[in-house]
Every structure is written in structure tokens, then in C-alpha cells.
Simulated scan of single mutants.
Amino acid sequence: MPDTAASRPVPTALGGLLALAAAMGIGRFVYTPILPYMAEGVPLDPAAAGLIASANFFGYLVGALAASVGTLPGGRRRWLLGALLLSAATTAGMGAAGGMSAFLLLRFLGGVASAFVLVFSSAIVLDRVAAAGRPGLSALHFSGVGGGIALTAVLVAALAAAGVDWRGQWYASGAATLACLLAATLLVPATPDTAAGSGADGHRSKAPLSAPLLRLIVAYGLYGFGYVITATFISVIVRTSSDLRPVEPYVWLAVGLSAAPSILAWNRVAARIGAAQAFAFACVLEALGVGLSVIEAGIANILLAAVLLGGTFVGIAALGLVEARRQATGDPRRVLAVMTASFGLGQMVGPWLAGLGAELTGSFVLPSLAAAVALLVASALVLVPARTAP
């Protein structure tokens, strides 16, 4: 059967959107709006909550490293759909978990699944839309993260209003992930890919990484650390403030709604000023949002922080991956996986340190300010190759 994927780039990008909505928007980030209900119902202290988040991000790191192995059997689509199924199972499984060990194991496995989905869906979609001469459709693919986050905000708020506890919220989230998997199965075309690590240029995939690409990889890790503390604990920050608690459902919704169209906006910015400069500018804006989330309590500030977080963090992720793919030689999956691993390392450390810091200081102020500094350093690092690269 001939490969017709290039002739139907829109369904392919829509399939990628649903894959990221399932494994990233739901599988990874639904923990944020459910966390306040878990903290009260389990119960969980900040250190335990941060450890559970870090287990997910550790799984993400392991998954990214595993996805970089060049000898994985089977095609990329098979690995993508299998990882989506694992994401649905581990998400629903959180509702049945009976203790800390189960929470840690399930979130770890969910992290592995989300990394595989990101790496393989991005490799499939970016290749196909490029082959079709429609690279702008990458924005549609990456908007799935924001769309999934918005869905989690509405879903969890509606379930909570109906009196559904945290266990039911996890079950419903797993069901939503499964629905996305079924739709993605129909939309992502079957292709004649052979081994997941193969390709016409596979022999070139282990070429040395350039200095600009290495700086981008380090900056991507700092970005992972910088965004994740607010992305994990913003609902808890709001829940613990009597002034902010009434807007708790709207804060996470603001993150998702601002994230969904942000890819298109940042693509346009990158087209005007360059991807590296756009990456750096977005990191500065995100640092401002991270700082605003803790510096001064107030509804306007927390909503602005949510919009700045949502409006930048998916855009930064997409800009980084697209730029890394541009600089890569041979099979792009290796570089995408290394980027994902760097990102995973940064975001694995963030929640754990933030939870410990909150336990010691009684707030998330110091961890959040450290995250803002990391984002500013990432911005500066990316500008170096932007100014010196030929």
C-alpha cells in the first residue's frame, strides 16, 4: 500500500493533536486540578504531592531515553498507539490506587507513556506535514496539549460540582484518554514505517551534536524546571488562599485556553524574529508569570499568571522541538528524544524541590522565584547560538 500520509496532512495533525491532548494534556496535567481534592481526601502534604509529580516526570525522563533507542522493534505508529493505551490505563488506575507506592508506580508509568507519545507523535506529524509542504500544521499538533489542559479544567470542575471525589475524577480522565486514543487510531495513518529506529538516514542519526544544539538542550532542561512548579502547584496555591479559592476552576481553565492557540501565535513570532529569539522572549514572559503567581495574592495577578503560563509553556516546548528537528541530521527521533530527556530531568527535579521548599518555608514563594531565575537563564543560553551561529 503506498504511503498516502503526505496527501492527508490535516487528519494526521488532528490525530497528533488528540494524542497530545490525551497523554500530555490529560495524562500528565490532570494531576494539577485533581491535586487539591487528593490533598484533602487522601490526604497528601506538599512534600508527598511533589514526590508523586516527580515520579511522573522521572517516568517521562526514562521514557524519553527509551524512545531514543535505535533498535526498537515495530513502527512508530504502533509505539504511539500502545503508549496511548498505557496512558489511559495508568490514568484510570490512579482512581483505584490505595497508597503512596501505587501512586508513585502509576504516575511513573504514565510518564513513560507520555514521553513515548510526544516523541513518536511529533516524529510522525512533523515528518508528514513537512512532506506535504504544510509545516504550519505543526501548530495544530502541539495545540493538543493546551486543548487537553482546558478539557481537564472543565471535566474536573464539573465532576467536583456534581460531588464526584478524586477517585471518580481519575476514572473519568482515563475514559477521556481512551476516547482520544480511539479517535487518534482512525486519524493517524498507517504508514510503511519499519523499525521505530529505522529510516533512510538512520546511519547518520548518531552524528555529534553541534554547540548551538547542545545549548538548546540545556536551555530546554532549565525551561522544564522553570515551568513545572507553577504548572503542578498553581491549583494548590489558589486553594490555600481564601481570597483566591473562588476562582480555582477558572485559573486552570485560563492556562488551557491560553495554551491552545499559543502555538500559532509563537510560530508567527518566530517567523518574524527567529525561533531562538522567540524561545528566549517566551521564557522571559513565563518567568514573569511564575513570579506573579506567588509575589502578591490577588485575583487579577493569579489570572494573569495563568495566562502567561499557558500562553508560553506549550509554545516554548514546540519552538524547542521544531528548532531541534531543524538542526538535526538524519533521523530526528534521536534529537527529539534527547530534548525530551533534558526537559524531563528539569521537570522531575522541580516538583520535588518545590514540595520540600514549601514544607520548610510554608509557601511556594522561594521555589517559584528559583524557577523564574531558571527561565531567565534558559533565555540567555538560547540567545548565544542565535547571535553567533552562521
Rank of each mutant, 00 (worst) to 15 (best):
62 V>T: 15
116 F>T: 01
90 T>A: 00
78 R>G: 12
70 G>T: 15
58 F>V: 15
119 V>F: 06
47 A>F: 07
45 D>R: 02
109 L>F: 13
37 Y>K: 05
119 V>P: 01
74 G>E: 11
53 A>Q: 14
63 G>L: 05
59 G>C: 06
37 Y>N: 06
90 T>M: 06
76 R>M: 12
128 R>C: 08
39 A>W: 03
108 F>H: 05
138 S>L: 01
61 L>S: 07
35 L>H: 04
43 P>K: 10
69 V>N: 14
45 D>Q: 09
41 G>F: 03
91 T>G: 02
121 S>D: 13
128 R>P: 02
138 S>N: 05
42 V>W: 07
32 T>F: 10
133 G>K: 08
83 A>S: 15
89 A>M: 12
32 T>G: 04
97 A>H: 09
125 V>S: 00
107 R>F: 02
134 R>K: 14
34 I>D: 02
77 R>F: 11
85 L>S: 06
133 G>T: 07
117 V>A: 12
48 A>V: 15
137 L>D: 10
69 V>I: 14
58 F>Q: 02
71 T>K: 09
133 G>H: 08
54 S>P: 03
33 P>C: 03
94 M>T: 14
130 A>E: 15
117 V>W: 10
39 A>T: 09
53 A>K: 09
33 P>Y: 04
70 G>F: 05
45 D>Y: 10
64 A>E: 04
44 L>N: 00
139 A>M: 10
38 M>F: 05
34 I>A: 01
52 I>L: 14
122 S>P: 03
101 S>L: 14
32 T>M: 08
113 A>T: 01
60 Y>M: 08
99 G>E: 12
44 L>D: 00
128 R>W: 03
101 S>G: 14
85 L>K: 07
133 G>S: 10
122 S>H: 03
96 A>G: 02
56 N>L: 10
83 A>Y: 09
119 V>K: 03
134 R>Q: 15
67 A>R: 05
77 R>N: 06
73 P>H: 13
51 L>Q: 11
92 A>T: 08
64 A>K: 01
64 A>M: 06
78 R>Y: 11
43 P>G: 14
46 P>M: 00
74 G>T: 11
83 A>M: 13
48 A>W: 12
102 A>H: 08
117 V>H: 07
49 A>L: 06
73 P>R: 15
73 P>Y: 12
128 R>G: 00
48 A>K: 06
48 A>N: 01
47 A>S: 11
62 V>S: 07
90 T>Y: 01
55 A>G: 02
89 A>D: 03
45 D>A: 06
68 S>M: 15
46 P>K: 04
85 L>H: 09
87 S>L: 10
126 L>Y: 12
50 G>F: 00
70 G>D: 13
81 L>V: 15
133 G>V: 13
75 G>Q: 13
38 M>E: 03
116 F>E: 05
130 A>R: 15
126 L>D: 12
31 Y>V: 08
54 S>W: 02
104 L>W: 14
31 Y>E: 09
63 G>C: 00
51 L>D: 10
50 G>L: 06
127 D>S: 13
130 A>W: 06
96 A>L: 13
132 A>V: 13
135 P>A: 12
67 A>V: 13
78 R>S: 14
64 A>G: 15
39 A>M: 15
39 A>E: 15
76 R>P: 06
74 G>Y: 07
111 G>L: 01
128 R>Y: 00
